[in-house]
């Protein structure tokens, strides 16, 4: 209700709009439902930008976004890089080797160094669960978790959610049966999706061999559930899991799992848990097929399934850029300590 020439007076956010107040995004467990909504709506706007002839806006012009991956990854790193560049940020890419850890170069030291080099937003991936929390404690800017150990992969969970909302009829996840199939134990994607999908009211099923579900039943079986979060079902019965599913998300199976004795062979995994057209027939006819990538086609997912129109794996990739743009943009607007502005 006022003139809003920028720079002259504070922004008035509509009374119906939640404000974003997280300085870092380390996991989705801290996001309230309306905050997730805000991410989704902001990602909508970013998709609008991606559709323009010039898919670039100056929102983060002059901002230094430093991307450090201690674990090799191409798709997530590039997705973040494209997202940051679409917002006109200056992107610095650092491939940190895990060997620097064994050489005694500490994470804290690295964080302080990139900060001294001008990093304002830090996108990081690390093989150790919880590493971004340590980074956030020592970094004055914003930390965005690009995946830590088995713990969390918040941007993946949000892009999965975005893709489901976009592609499910009615755009709602509440009451939909969502199945995550595969190596749950080692999956940060699954862990973050547990928070976001149960918060969205999905009927979530985690399915895989018992060795790759270790400990998850104790979580899923919580009677009361965590605050605002429903229960989920943990099973090794793939037919029960897939029956009438609305969404099936297959996870990558890594060869190391056999070396450590968790699986007899990939062949046996494929025979019992591989997502084939036959198995998928138990799901709803229009059930979405998803995969966070990278895929081992023919192992955890059959190429014929990937080829289906309702396999939205490429949408996940495109939406990943929009969601990461949205998160970079939202985080950049929060200054200083969390909630410091609330004093006003």
């Amino acid at each position: 209700m006022s003139d809003r020439d920028p720079g002259a007076e504070p922004i008035v956010v509509g009374a119906d709009a939640p404000a974003w107040r997280h300085r870092h995004l380390l996991d989705v467990d801290v996001l309230a439902a309306d905050e997730i909504d805000l991410v989704m709506r902001t990602a909508d706007a970013m998709k609008g930008i991606l559709a323009r002839p010039i898919a670039k806006v100056p929102a983060l012009r002059g901002r230094n976004v430093t991307i450090i991956f201690w674990e090799a990854s191409t798709r997530t790193r590039v997705s973040f890089e494209v997202a940051a560049k679409n917002l006109s940020a200056d992107v610095v890419n650092i491939a940190a080797s895990t060997s620097s850890v064994t050489k005694g170069e500490s994470l804290v030291d690295t964080i302080r160094t990139v900060q001294a080099l001008g990093a304002q937003m830090l996108v990081m991936r690390h093989g150790t669960s919880g590493a971004p929390y340590l980074a956030a404690e020592h970094f004055d800017g914003h930390v965005l978790n690009g995946g830590d150990g088995w713990h969390a992969h918040p941007t993946q969970a949000l892009l999965d959610l975005y893709t489901m909302r976009e592609r499910l009829p009615g755009g709602s996840i509440a009451g939909r049966k969502v199945v995550i199939l595969g190596d749950i134990l080692h999956s940060r994607v699954a862990r973050s999706n547990i928070w976001s999908l149960t918060a969205a009211g999905a009927d979530l099923w985690l399915c895989g061999p018992s060795t790759l579900l270790r400990g998850l039943d104790r979580w899923g079986g919580r009677a009361a559930g965590f605050p605002g979060h429903g229960r989920f079902t943990v099973t090794s019965d793939v037919d029960a899991a897939l029956r009438d599913a609305d969404v099936v998300m297959a996870l990558r199976i890594q060869k190391e799992r056999m070396d450590s004795g968790l699986l007899p062979s990939l062949r046996e995994y494929t025979a019992r848990f591989g997502l084939t057209l036959d198995r998928l027939a138990a799901a709803k006819p229009d059930a979405l097929v998803m995969h966070p990538g990278p895929m081992n086609e023919g192992v955890e997912i059959d190429p014929a399934v990937v080829a289906l129109d309702r396999a939205v794996i490429e949408d996940q990739v495109t939406n990943g850029v929009a969601v990461r743009m949205a998160l970079l943009y939202l985080l950049a607007g929060v200054h200083g300590a969390e909630g410091a502005h609330d004093a006003a």
Partner: peptide, 16 residues
Amino acid sequence: AEANEGLVASVLGLRG
């Protein structure tokens, strides 16, 4: 292993 095998380790993704 990183943390007692149980609910907390499962939620935090720490090796049991």
